Amino acid sequence: MPLTLTLTQGVLPDGAEAQAIARITDAFLAAHGLSGNKVMTPNVTAHVNILPKGATFAGGRPVEGAWIETKTPSFALADHAVQERFFTDATEILHELSGRRLPKDRIWANGVHAVDGTWNINGSPMTNAEIGAAVANG
């Protein structure tokens, strides 16, 4: 389940990206009740994009901010309570790591659901049902 964190350069202190990803990953797993799950934990992946000032925009104007995007099977982030918990926690994590300098209204997020069967886990494409069964055993 890839998480993408895009940041305007300087909104987090240098080196804080790894801490942000670790904490956002933990928040994603916790929101789903999967903390420590042996199947799901190593399959929540992430990457960070850091863009220079002047290359990030809101309302068509340059802005310094942060963007969180998830790509998940349709059963993940399907419940509004889970969505609210995860995205609220992820926003707070970035706000805190910025030294509270990055306003929460400059942290945007969205979730994208993938087509069933398009997840490649442990070298094999899996359906939602197959992932669910593997997670239940993890």
Rank of each mutant, 00 (worst) to 15 (best):
Pro2Thr: 08
Thr4Cys: 03
Thr6Trp: 06
Thr6Leu: 07
Gln9Glu: 15
Gly10Pro: 06
Leu12Thr: 01
Asp14His: 09
Glu17Gln: 12
Ala18Lys: 14
Ala18His: 11
Ala18Leu: 09
Ala20Gln: 02
Ala22Lys: 12
Ala22Ser: 13
Arg23Lys: 14
Ile24Arg: 00
Ile24Gln: 04
Phe28His: 05
Phe28Ser: 00
Ala30Gln: 10
Ala31Thr: 04
Gly33Asp: 13
Gly33Phe: 05
Leu34Ile: 09
Lys38Pro: 08
Met40Pro: 00
Thr41Leu: 13
Thr41Ala: 15
Thr41Ser: 13
Pro42Trp: 12
Val44Trp: 00
Val44Ser: 02
Ala46Ser: 14
His47Val: 07
His47Asp: 11
His47Ser: 11
Val48Gln: 07
Val48Lys: 06
Pro52Met: 10
Gly54Glu: 11
Phe57Lys: 06
Ala58Cys: 11
Gly59Pro: 05
Val63Gly: 05
Glu64Asn: 12
Ala66Gly: 09
Ala66Val: 04
Glu69Arg: 04
Thr72Asn: 15
Pro73Gln: 10
Ala76Cys: 14
Leu77Phe: 07
His80Ala: 12
Gln83Asn: 14
Glu84Gly: 02
Glu84Val: 03
Arg85Ser: 10
Arg85Ile: 02
Arg85Asp: 09
Phe86Cys: 01
Phe87Ser: 02
Glu92Ile: 01
Ser98Phe: 04
Arg100Glu: 14
Arg101Phe: 07
Arg101Gly: 08
Pro103Asn: 11
Pro103Glu: 15
Pro103Leu: 11
Asp105Asn: 15
Arg106Ala: 10
Ala109Asn: 09
Gly111Cys: 15
Ala114Met: 15
Gly117Thr: 06
Gly117Ser: 10
Thr118Glu: 07
Trp119His: 07
Trp119Ser: 03
Asn120Leu: 09
Gly123Pro: 07
Gly123Gln: 11
Met126Glu: 11
Ala129Cys: 08
Ile131Val: 15
Gly138Ser: 12
Gly138Asn: 12
